[in-house]
Amino acid sequence: MRTHTSTDARGRQTGRRHPLASIALITIGLLSTGGAYALMTTTASAETSVATQQSVNEGQKIFAANCATCHGMTASGTKDGPSLYGVGAASVDFQMGTGRMPLAYQGPQGAQKPLQFTQEQIDDVAAYIASLAPGPAVPDEKYLAGDADVALGGQLFRTNCAMCHNVAGAGGALTEGKFAPSLKGVEARHIYEAMVTGPQNMPVFSDSNLSPQDKADIISFLKFQNQHASPGGVDLGGLGPVSEGLFIWIFGLGAIVGVTIWITARPN
């Protein structure tokens, strides 16, 4: 018993990780707290300057016609919708780009709908909102390619995301009718924007919490999961033991009971 634990101990001197991995992680962490943050703010300001005044004006018009009822004419918020100061272009791109905004009805949670605007219109509104106050910008393409560290991304995903979205990204229930949506087929850009902006009741994963590289890892992991069909066959929705149990009762036992009836039926 005792000797057993001591052999285990040797195997576990470093806890769950290899010491080199820790160093690598610390480096990434430092990057996230320092350099990456600077990088991020510069990209944000660059974005604002690039957006032309014409685009901002166009965006303001679309905003006034479609969004102002709830968010107010100056986007400062009303009792029906929050202020949009500082939410940034990323938030607009996510909310409108996934069809969540404009809301169809007031409910526990805005639902995904078919898009109501072209990407150009969304970009205009994003430019307008970004012009009001600095906020997270639309992410850089280099974080969205899905070529980062899949295994590390998986670990980050399980620690920070799987509790709500499920390990297979199948989604899950929250309180009072809210839910974490399925991540299957969601564009990398929208996943990144959701992490940065924390839409609805999702927490914000700022760059000081998950660095852009961490986010790229998570996106790579999700892409990896999406790209590969389950090696075992049909995944039954990735819902785990509940769908497996229903399947064996209905189809497994159902088929076999069918066979028993055939066995005991008398041929003509």
Partner: peptide, 19 residues
């Protein structure tokens, strides 16, 4: 931070985030 094992500054914990 789990799993990165890096310390957290108070200023990094922005409103609405969860570590």
């Amino acid at each position: 931070r789990d799993p990165a094992n890096t310390p957290v500054k108070a200023s990094e914990v922005t409103l609405g985030s969860v570590f």
